[in-house]
Amino acid sequence: MRDHLHEYIYDSTDPKANEGLGTDMGALIVLVSFLAVLQVALDTVSAWHRDTMVWLNETASYLAGFWPF
């Protein structure tokens, strides 16, 4: 059983393959970071829009209370 342990170890003797893997991992990290920033920005804008609509609705209701008809 112990003879098969070496099959699960990633070992490359090709430095270009290691460099390519590092480049791909770096690109993946940058992509995920960009998507996380985009998600935070979308959540912020959505919350701001929702709060603005609530405020405008309450303001309109308050001002409509002064309407004499």
Rank of each mutant, 00 (worst) to 15 (best):
T44W: 06
A64K: 03
N57E: 11
T52F: 12
P15D: 02
L38E: 02
M53F: 13
H49N: 15
L35T: 05
Y8R: 09
S61R: 14
R2L: 13
A36I: 09
D3M: 06
A17E: 13
T23G: 04
K16P: 00
L35V: 05
F69A: 15
D14G: 07
T59I: 04
W55E: 07
S12L: 02
L56T: 09
V54P: 00
F34V: 02
L56C: 08
D14M: 04
D11I: 13
L38D: 03
L31Y: 15
F66G: 01
G22A: 03
D3T: 09
T59C: 04
V45E: 01
R2T: 06
P68H: 15
T59N: 10
D51K: 01
V45Y: 01
M25K: 03
D51M: 03
A27N: 12
L56A: 07
A60Y: 14
N57D: 12
L42E: 03
L28T: 10
V32F: 11
L56Y: 11
R2M: 08
E58Q: 10
T23H: 07
M53T: 12
N57A: 10
L63W: 11
R2A: 08
N18I: 13
S61I: 14
S33P: 01
Y62P: 06
S33M: 07
L5Y: 03
T52P: 03
I29V: 12
Y8W: 15
P68M: 14
L31V: 12
L63C: 04
E58K: 13
V32W: 06
W67F: 09
M53E: 14
D3E: 06
A41W: 03
G22C: 02
W67L: 09
E19W: 05
D14A: 05
V45P: 00
V37Y: 00
L42W: 07
N18L: 14
S33N: 07
V45I: 02
A41M: 01
T23E: 05
M25D: 04
T23I: 01
S33L: 13
D11L: 15
S61N: 15
I9H: 07
D43H: 03
A41G: 03
L21P: 00
H49S: 14
L5R: 02
D51G: 01
P68I: 12
L5K: 00
L38S: 05
Y8V: 11
M53P: 02
T23Q: 08
L28I: 08
L21D: 06
P15T: 01
G20D: 14
A60F: 12
D43K: 05
L35I: 02
R2K: 10
Y62D: 12
A27Q: 12
W55V: 07
T52L: 12
W55I: 05
H4V: 06
I29R: 12
P15H: 07
D24T: 04
A64N: 10
T44G: 01
D11Y: 13
D24C: 10
K16R: 10
M25Q: 06
S12W: 04
L56S: 09
S46A: 06
M25V: 05
S12D: 08
D51T: 00
I29T: 13
E19I: 06
A64Y: 04
R50T: 00
V30K: 14
V30C: 11
V54W: 00
V32C: 08
R2H: 08
I9M: 10
W55L: 09
Y8Q: 13
H49T: 10
G26C: 01
T13D: 15
L42H: 04
T13E: 15
V54M: 00
T52Q: 15
L28W: 13
